[in-house]
Amino acid sequence: MREIIRITVSLTVSCLIAALVMGSVFIITDKAKRHNEQLNIQQTMLGLLGYGKDTPAPSDLEFYTIYRYIIEDGEIKTLGYMVPVGAEGKDSYELVTIDLAGQFVDRISLDITPESASEPPERKSALKSVLKPPKKFVYADATIIAERGDKRLAYLLPGEFPGFKTFIHVMLALDPTFTIIGLDITEHEEDPGLGGEIQEDYFKNQFKGKSFERTKNLTVVKEPLPDEYKKYLVAGKGEGLSKGIVDTIRTKYLDRDIYSLTGATISSKAVTNGVKNMINKFAYRLNILDSVIERQHIPVAF
């Protein structure tokens, strides 16, 4: 009996010590870690818009985030959009609910500042105070609108879809006509050397410049990637290639389908279909949201 107690006590003590060490390290590093993650996302966003070390982003570039929630009230489902409102921009958030047929339902002011809106728990508590039970809500996704002056520059859509193994996380940049500006794979677990190549320039840059109409019937072709096209895709803005050639290659391949990766057709198809779905759904939802905002005269920031 004494042995059992001794074992129990020493196991508990070891666990407590380990928990104490891990907990204190977590508390010390948490802030820096989250800061890094934010920075990472920011860099991805700027990178997709074509800003980097050499071309710093202009000072009037602003980002506004819309959060979409699915609200359940018994049997009835509605979509709730948390949109930033206020004339000078970042003042507060408003919850705009729209039913599944696209009709406006309600708008409610939320007690949350844009700084704290980027934290999921803060959003949850703000929503809880206006959506009383039995109403339930689930987070769906976020959309970031990039704006310069008063003009919408781009939409940035973080998203995920199933790949060959697990989910592929991407960030997609669209211009106001839903033409793809850029695609970045932020997280994936595809096989290195096969499906893992989706993060390489010569695959993801194939999506650049595809128009909204073109993406609707975009498919994957199992053909070897032409050499000149590969050179163009890898060179980014056409470094090492003369201006004339870059333009001819771009127009030549602009309307082509996506060339499949060698030995990774499933991953290639997953990305292509995922991107297609994201754009389609987003365009549909944004049109509804925009028309509701216009009709209800919601003073949105973007």
């Binding site: 074992i7 020493s10 196991l11 380990a18 891990m22 390290v25 977590f26 590093t29 820096a32």
Partner: peptide, 28 residues
Amino acid sequence: IHPRIRIPTYTLTIATWVTVIDLVLAAY
């Protein structure tokens, strides 16, 4: 270390170090 629970202790130690290294790397 109590000899009966040495393996759990090892696992705990490894897990602690892995977590610490993971967090420190991510932060700094």
